[in-house]
């Protein structure tokens, strides 16, 4: 196994984990709300900007912007605020489209994504330009003679932990079971004294917070935060969720790994691959949906008459 191959393999899983963190949110929200929250990618990528703001705020207030403690605190605060923003978007906008035709909600959330991107551009100082975003951890570890960047290890470990925590939450806690109940049958859940509105807000918080981790990792992976990152990342996260089958968590993860795999492969092997990567990724998306019209793990559509 050559060094280069290992590097690509690691790159694949790192990228796949980041996409999965965002795709899981798309799938979770669709499962519960039955609408596409197209701006989920934009919400997720607010997190790096929030983290940078918190760091500079702490820096100007206390004067120690460089310490590790500050940095960790900033990340946690960013994740929490992103979750709250997700809830607020539901309360202000998305809530109104619960009964509307699906396409209406889709177009509205696409517009919402535009608004979020533009808000970053105007509210963040120098928002139109890329901002350096630090690697969360530096250095390498050596395992069995191979040097592996610590960053990749951390991304993979944290993503696995986050997804496991989500699965645990969905299957074993009261809130999780309520979420599953609402996604299966909103009216029956209401009859069981579950308040769907509260469940929707909880789902928005969880999905946005997990997406925020993905957003922070992505900016750290790219080394910078840009207001327009979310166009590509959001689209890829959405595609991963759809290819996997909307509403299915394992599907979203498989979809992310599939797309990240092709992405890495094209960049490594095809000449001029970096500019053609999206072509390959989206041809894959079309290909998968031709043969599996409701995604790889999607519930097959049986129409009730």
């Amino acid at each position: 196994m050559s060094e280069l191959f290992l590097q690509q393999l690691l790159n694949w899983i790192t990228l796949g984990s980041i996409y999965a963190l965002i795709a899981v949110g798309f799938s979770l929200l669709f499962g519960v709300l039955n609408i596409i929250h197209f701006s989920h990618g934009d919400v997720s990528l607010l997190a790096p900007f929030l983290a940078l703001s918190v760091i500079s705020a702490i820096g100007s207030a206390l004067g120690d912007a460089g310490s590790l403690g500050t940095f960790l605190l900033a990340l946690l605060v960013a994740i929490a605020i992103t979750g709250v923003i997700g809830v607020l978007l539901d309360l202000v906008v998305i809530q109104r489209f619960r009964q509307a035709p699906a396409m209406m909600a889709l177009v509205a959330t696409v517009a919402l994504g535009i608004v979020l991107r533009e808000l970053i551009r105007h509210l963040f100082p120098n928002g139109s330009n890329p901002h350096a975003f630090p690697r969360l951890v530096e250095g390498d570890v050596t395992i069995a003679g191979f040097t592996i960047p610590l960053f990749s290890v951390m991304v993979i470990v944290v993503s696995v932990l986050a997804v496991c925590a989500l699965f645990f939450m969905l299957n074993n806690t009261r809130l999780g079971l309520h979420i599953k109940a609402v996604s299966q049958d909103r009216d029956a859940a209401r009859l069981m004294a579950i308040n769907p509105g509260r469940i929707f807000r909880a789902t928005f918080f969880v999905a946005s917070a997990i997406g925020a981790i993905g957003g922070l990792f992505f900016s750290s992976y790219a080394g910078m935060a840009r207001f327009d990152f979310s166009i590509d990342v959001g689209l890829i996260g959405f595609s991963a969720a759809v290819v996997g089958g909307l509403g299915s968590m394992p599907g979203a993860i498989i979809g992310s790994l599939l797309i990240a795999g092709l992405d890495t492969l094209v960049q490594a092997t095809v000449p001029n691959g970096a500019s053609y990567r999206l072509v390959f990724v989206f041809l894959l998306v079309i290909g998968v949906l031709v043969f599996r019209p409701s995604g790889l793990m999607g519930r097959s559509l049986v129409e009730k008459v």
């Binding site: 596409i36 689209l235 041809l283 949906l289 019209p293 409701s294």
Partner: peptide, 22 residues
């Protein structure tokens, strides 16, 4: 022909992105 709703929306989005990138 086979896909519907959100899945169909994604097929058309994907097609649009492929054409733009090409």
């Amino acid at each position: 022909m086979r896909t519907r709703d959100s899945y169909l929306a994604l097929v058309t989005i994907a097609f649009g992105v492929v054409i733009h990138q090409l």
